[in-house]
């Protein structure tokens, strides 16, 4: 008998734990968007798992009434890999931050992406260490003055989208904490993707790095800063539609032309060659002009758990239906002899 379709609501995904982020933190908006989005999936709560590392963002699993693990710093993608490979029936989300994913856990992130493990990885990027009270992060801009860099940081930041593309990610997207509609649409696309889906979420830390993304949010500026990527749509933006993303003939990269007549590129995230998505990821300068949001890349590649399971199924086809007997044959294989 077919079961009735799941009728869950956002409330079903709220756990009984008191949320302990600072008032005004961007994480609240992301949590609310996630709780609002999850019922849409039609997946029962017990089949959803959130795995996180350490940091403000990584408290996320405690607040969702699904299965969840708040693990250790940087290791969530590794832990989630073991879970995803052994339990393909689950939908596994990884929640991480710029320090967790790009500093201490950088290695696990890139390898999860190249393997195309079936994980939805949400990187909350606030360009600062929040939980340790305000040191610069690997996405902080050069010269960032923080508690640990009173004279300004000397290191050059990562561009998380470029990094994910370089790590062979099959799905790469960016969104913003305060734009619930856009955030939800990106979560939806990520959830539908088979394999690793990497989503960078610009998230405001109102205590240690307030307003880091303000130009992308303020109604006065955002239209002239944001490029909304939509599959099959021309890359024309601006308050008056005055900007066009074009590909100059003499360049490997893309550029933004302030011209109503320029012919904009048409966005296609499904291109096999990641060069286009990479070029998009390089458009924004330190002042965040011009920041693409949406899906940069979405290509189809067999996920790691599927390839592993295919091998397993192929091998198991040769097994008898009696594991004890197969084990006995294995133990007795090779050069054996009998003592009477």
């Amino acid at each position: 008998m077919p079961s009735a379709p799941l009728q869950l609501t956002a409330k079903d995904f709220k756990s009984d734990q008191e949320v302990r982020w600072c008032p005004g933190c961007g994480d609240y908006a992301i949590l609310a968007a996630m709780q609002g989005f999850l019922p849409e999936l039609g997946i029962p709560r017990e089949r959803i798992v959130f795995v996180s590392g350490i940091g403000c963002s990584s408290r996320f699993p405690y607040y969702l009434d699904t299965y969840g693990m708040h693990s250790i710093h940087g290791r969530a993608p590794a832990i989630a890999t073991g879970l995803s490979v052994t339990r393909p029936d689950l939908q596994v989300w990884v929640v991480t931050g710029d320090g967790d994913a790009l500093s201490i856990g950088g290695n696990h992130l890139i390898h999860a992406l190249r393997r195309n493990v079936n994980l939805k990885i949400l990187l909350f990027n606030n360009k600062i260490y929040g939980l340790t009270k305000g040191q610069y992060s690997p996405t902080s801009e050069v010269g960032k003055v923080t508690k640990s860099t009173p004279a300004g940081s000397a290191d050059y930041p990562f561009n998380p989208i470029s990094l994910a593309l370089g790590a062979e990610a099959s799905f790469v997207a960016r969104t913003i904490d305060s734009d619930r509609k856009h955030l939800t649409s990106v979560l939806r696309a990520a959830a539908e993707h088979q394999g690793s889906a990497f989503v960078e979420i610009y998230q405001n830390c109102n205590i240690f790095n307030d307003g880091a993304f303000e130009v992308l949010k303020d109604s006065e500026t955002r239209d002239n800063y944001l490029i909304r990527l939509e599959q099959g749509q021309p890359l024309r933006f601006g308050s008056e539609g005055q900007f066009a993303v074009t590909h100059p003939a003499n360049s490997f990269g893309l550029t933004v032309e302030d011209s109503a007549s320029a012919e904009p590129l048409v966005h296609d995230a499904t291109q096999e060659d990641p060069a286009y998505a990479f070029a998009l990821s390089r458009l924004a300068g330190p002042d965040l002009r011009y920041t693409p949001v949406g899906v940069f890349r979405s290509v189809s590649r067999p996920s790691y758990d599927k390839l592993v399971r295919d091998q397993l199924e192929k091998a198991k086809a040769k097994a008898s239906d009696n594991p004890a007997q197969d084990l006995a044959s294995l133990l007795n294989s090779g050069d054996t002899w009998t003592i009477l």
Partner: peptide, 15 residues
């Protein structure tokens, strides 16, 4: 670290 992390994830999942 990833090796043991994956093993922990697998145990969490019932392997």
């Amino acid at each position: 670290i990833a090796a043991i992390g994956a093993a922990i994830g697998a145990s969490y999942g019932g392997a």
